[in-house]
Structures are given as C-alpha cells and as structure tokens.
Computed example of a mutant assay.
Amino acid sequence: MASNKNQHFVPRCYLKPFTIKGEGAAINVYNLDRQRLITNAPVKNQCSRDYFYGQDDKLEIAIQSLEQEYGSVLNEIIQPGYKFQSHHQYILQLFWLFQYLRTEGACRRSAEMFADMIEPAGLDSGFSMSIKEAVQTAMGAFADNMEVVSDLKICLLKNATNVPFLSSDDPAVLTNRWQLEDKRTRGGSLGLRDAGAILLLPLSPTIFCLGYDPDVYRIPSNNSWLTIRKATDVEALNEFQVLNCRANLFVGSLDYADGLHRFVNNFIRHRPAVRHIVNFAIFEGEETAEHKKYRVVSKSDFKEAHDGIMHAQTISQIPSQWPSFLLRRNKSCAYYNGTGIGYIRQMHATLMEVAQPFFRVSPYR
C-alpha cells in the first residue's frame, strides 16, 4: 500500500517557485469559476487527492524519483548565472510528458471521452472508466512513450517584464502553431508525434520552459536561453494557462492581482465549452479488397447500425496571439505518407512500421 495518502497531481516541488516568496507553504489561487483571487491558500491542499495514483507503493516511489530529479534540475535553473546543460533537457522533456498526462484535468477528460463512446456502442455502464482507472492508463501511456518528445528542442525563457508567468492546475500544455493554422491540418487533434509540436511549461514567475520542433520553427536563443522583454509575449504564453487549466491559476505575488483579473476577463470566454467531440460513421455497403466506404451520421443513426466506427477528436483552442519570437524555419520539413497518421516528425517517421512509406514535405509551402 502507498505510504502517502495525499497524492499530488501537480507536485509541490513544481509549485514552490509560484508560492508566496518562494517558501513553498502558501500560494495565491485565482479560481476561474468564481473569478476570485484566494490569497494565502495552503500548498498542501492544492492539486491533490487521496490515493490519486492508487495504492501501489512501487508506483509512488517511481513518481517521487522523477519529481526529485525535476526538483534538483529546477533548483539549478533558477540560480543566477545558470548555463543550460544538455542532460537537463531530457529531464525537462520527461517531466513535461509526465505532467501532461497525469493531472486530474487530463485524466478526467480521458474518462469523459471514454464515457461518450460507451453508450453509442451499446455497452453498459460496467465498461465505464473511472478517474482512477484513467490515471492508471495515463501511467501506462507514460511508461510506453517516455521518448516520444525527446527529439524536441528545449529553450528556457527569462522574463524581463512586469508581467509574471502564470501556472495552473494543468500547467503542461501541448500546442502546435503550424497544424492549428495550416489548411491541410486545421481542425484535427494534436499529437505528441506531430510535426510542429510545441510544449509549454512555466517553471517560475520568471522562467519558462518551451519545447519545439526545430524542423518547423526557430527561436533566436543564446545557448538555449532567450530573454523576453515584451509583456505581450508573456501574455501569449499565459493565455494557454487560462485556456487549458481545469479551475485554478497560480500567482506568487499580489502585485499582479489587478492585472490578472483583467487578463482573465479578456480570455475566459475563449475557453472551449467542450474538450472533445466524438464523430460517428456507418458502413455504406461499398467495399473493395482494400477499402470500405463509411458515411458520417448522427449518434442516434449510429446506434441502429450493425457496422460503424467512432472517432474521438480532442478540441484544441487557437490562441489570440503567438509569441513574437516563435519564427518559421527556412527549409522546414515534416513527414507524411498520405494516411490518417498525419504529418509527423522525422524520428517517428523513421521508427514507425507502416505499409506506405513516409516522404518529406514542406510545412510552409
């Protein structure tokens, strides 16, 4: 049995830089539902549930080990004069992936998506997925895909403005500027293997970790550091926290209290009403040796069909602006084989075993 009952899905080592005076005891919480700033909230009560990961002591130890590695790297990063070290890149990538998969918001979205596919398939509620089961699934996904973002480049952003970086109860964000804007890919779900992927994770009010596909974008960094001097660039990154979080934002200093309220009011209405949709299609009766033809239908028509398919699609919000330093790379590239796999990065095109080979294409044509 796990020795720790109160288990955090956003760890205290991560939240500490956002706490009051960085002391790790109390934090200022902005609740979006009430649009209210709650001051001096105990950190021990934030982003935690009783036995959130279950009662497997080995799993708890493995989680603590990764958190300790991240905490050690973070302590070095926030020190004045820190120079980026290549082996820290992998820890940041790994922690981002783990944090992306494991929050209550992420696991709840998985459970809700699963539930929306159960009833049309004619299965009873016994096949439903609980939040705890979704957590266990997320842990398995992490174990099976630890290298999935290891080819992305990490850049640390230093905030030299009066607007602090915000964090939240779901701080690790996946986005993709190219795929959200290009007509070939617009409207689809974003994937971890996709060309143009961008990873976002605030590390403190003054430091931000950004991972990006170097074959699609370029960032004018110096030894993996970039100083941000435009408040609009900080706000562009903070907007993702407003759009992605489940309920709460975190801010260390009350100096930004009035600005935070105005900022949230500008973007709260852009939060997606739903985080996924399920599409339904039924077999039309036309079939060849290689293909079957399906037609998109309503959920009620799908229930009556004997041969149908469902497709769950994650809704990704397009932000109102992108950071000015996120630039297109000349001679950019992605890999495509004409199938529903979509446009992916070179590492995954090389590793993936498929019948139709991938070929190189230009994202910006």
Rank of each mutant, 00 (worst) to 15 (best):
D124L: 02
V135E: 04
E181I: 12
M146K: 13
P120Y: 06
E112S: 03
W178T: 04
T137S: 12
D144H: 13
K132I: 11
F98K: 15
A197R: 10
T137V: 12
S189T: 12
D169G: 02
R218C: 11
K158T: 13
Y212M: 12
D151G: 14
S110F: 07
T103W: 09
L226N: 00
L174T: 03
E181F: 05
S204K: 12
I207T: 04
Y217W: 05
K132S: 14
Y212A: 09
G191Y: 08
L97C: 01
N176K: 08
A141D: 14
V135Q: 09
E147W: 10
S128M: 11
G188M: 06
L156Q: 07
V148N: 00
I219F: 01
L210A: 01
A111P: 07
I207D: 00
L157F: 12
F114R: 12
G105A: 13
C209M: 11
E104N: 08
I219E: 00
L92Y: 13
D182M: 15
R109C: 08
T137G: 05
V163P: 10
N223P: 05
I131S: 12
A121P: 12
F165S: 01
N223R: 12
L166P: 05
F127T: 09
C107F: 00
T227Y: 02
L180G: 01
Y217D: 03
A106T: 04
M146G: 09
E112P: 04
V163N: 06
N145A: 11
P171M: 07
L152W: 00
W96K: 12
Q99Y: 04
M117E: 14
Y90Q: 15
I91V: 15
F165V: 01
A134C: 07
D194E: 02
S150W: 05
F208D: 01
F98D: 11
Y100I: 00
L123K: 14
D116R: 13
P171C: 03
D194K: 03
A195S: 14
E181Y: 05
A197G: 14
G187H: 06
A106M: 02
I198E: 06
P171S: 05
Q179F: 00
D116H: 15
D116S: 15
T227F: 01
S204V: 10
E181C: 08
A141H: 14
D170A: 07
S150T: 12
Q93P: 10
M117Y: 04
I198K: 01
D213I: 02
I198Q: 03
A172K: 10
W96S: 11
F142T: 05
L199M: 09
S128D: 14
R184W: 05
S125A: 15
G105K: 15
D151T: 14
T206W: 05
S128A: 13
P164D: 01
V135F: 03
V216H: 01
T175I: 06
C155D: 08
Q93K: 08
L157Q: 02
S130L: 03
P171Q: 00
A160W: 07
A195K: 11
L94S: 14
V135W: 04
D194F: 06
G211N: 03
S189K: 02
V148D: 01
G126T: 09
I118P: 08
V149N: 07
Q179I: 02
G105E: 13
Q136L: 13
L97H: 05
A141Q: 15
G211P: 04
